[in-house]
Design a protein around this nucleic acid. Structure first.
Length: 329
DNA sequence: GTTTTATGGGAAG
DNA sequence: TTCCCCTAAAACA
């Protein structure tokens, strides 16, 4: 379910709550028993994300690579240090609590319209992290009874992380991790250097492939999924069917810079917010409703918010492509 | 109760 | 390009 921003947020939760500690690993579902056993009892040394992939380094250079795929998720429970942006959407929508105001799984600081509160002290709770985050009722016991298909459970004295529905979950050596990383295109949260941008630009300008496909190709640029693809091309005013090599250098650099911009917002807010400059009530509405967050994604048949042309829905690369023929040339 | 849907990607043909 | 895997929640009846 997640695009790149959510995987970076998950990595951050692991750094705050697990890194530096010895971790018990199990596979309640039974499909990762051998892998869990390999790392169980060792220290989790480092966690980071590149694109949509999560890398957990345990002691002795044992790594676990995870890809959530279309509907994977992590459930964190126990006494967790939470991002200020995480809170319940269940029944608390739009209400103000002691830390801020709750909207669709995110809390926004009452002191600044779009700014975030700092990290809170650990508190007993349960949070599902996928494309966005949702807090749910706390179970009394710790660790909680596994619910559903838990492929991998990571457990310390105080916190528990349950992985379900991943498309990839495997133990790798350092060499194998390097091989995976070498195949990934640049991710601005991992490397925002001009060299990284230049790699993206050079690749795009060489290819005959449609730019709508190139943005989804994780070896061209890492972390973009179906929502960001549609929204970035709308923001750039580019027809998704144009071959990469037909773009100008300026257009291609603008795409890279916009990905830096949108990904940073996603990592900070926990939402794929792709309309800039919203204030006050408009910001709140956009946080609460997807339809108010996006220009074209899931808006097929509706009038374009900019030019009034009906938003079109096509199929591209087996995925739904939303775009505005009026704005994108 | 059953069907549909999803923000992904790898393998097979 | 088509098929297939991962799982759960939402949508429908």
């Amino acid at each position: 379910m997640p695009e790149g921003h959510s995987v970076h947020r998950i990595a951050r939760q692991f750094r705050r709550n697990f890194v530096g500690q010895s971790v018990q690993a199990t596979s309640p579902q039974g499909r990762f028993v051998a892998g869990a056993k390999q790392v169980s009892g060792t220290e989790l040394v480092e966690v980071f994300a590149v694109g949509k992939q999560l890398f957990l380094r345990f002691a002795d250079d044992q790594w676990v690579r995870i890809h959530l795929g279309m509907y994977g998720a992590w459930d964190f429970s126990g006494d967790i240090q939470l991002d200020a942006t995480i809170a319940s959407a269940n029944g608390r929508m739009g209400q103000t609590n002691q830390r801020g105001t709750v909207f669709d799984g995110a809390v926004y600081d009452r002191h600044g319209e779009n700014s975030l509160t700092s990290i809170g002290a650990p508190r007993r709770t349960r949070v599902r992290m996928a494309e966005s985050e949702k807090e749910s009722a706390v179970q009394a016991e710790f660790p909680p009874e596994p619910i559903g298909q838990v492929r991998l459970r990571l457990l310390t004295e105080t916190v528990c992380a349950d992985l379900r529905g991943p498309t990839a979950c495997e133990v790798l050596t350092t060499e194998q991790v390097d091989a995976v990383l070498a195949k990934l295109g640049p991710d601005p949260q991992h490397d925002a250097s001009d060299e990284a941008g230049q790699r993206f630009v050079d690749t795009v300008l060489k290819k005959q492939t449609a730019i709508g496909l190139l943005l989804m190709d994780q070896s061209v640029v890492a972390g973009i999924g179906n929502v960001y693809r549609a929204e970035m091309l709308f923001r750039a005013g580019i027809d998704p069917y144009r071959p990469g090599k037909s773009l100008t250098t300026d257009e291609t650099w603008a795409l890279w810079r916009d990905w830096i911009h949108l990904l940073a917002i996603g990592v900070e807010t926990g939402q794929m917010m792709t309309i800039d400059g919203l204030q006050g009530e408009q910001w709140r509405a956009a946080m609460a409703n997807r339809a108010d967050r996006h220009w074209v994604y899931k808006r097929e048949g509706l009038p374009c918010k900019r030019c009034g042309t009906n938003v079109r829905l096509d199929e591209m690369g087996n995925r739904k492509l939303y775009w505005c023929p009026g704005c994108q040339k």
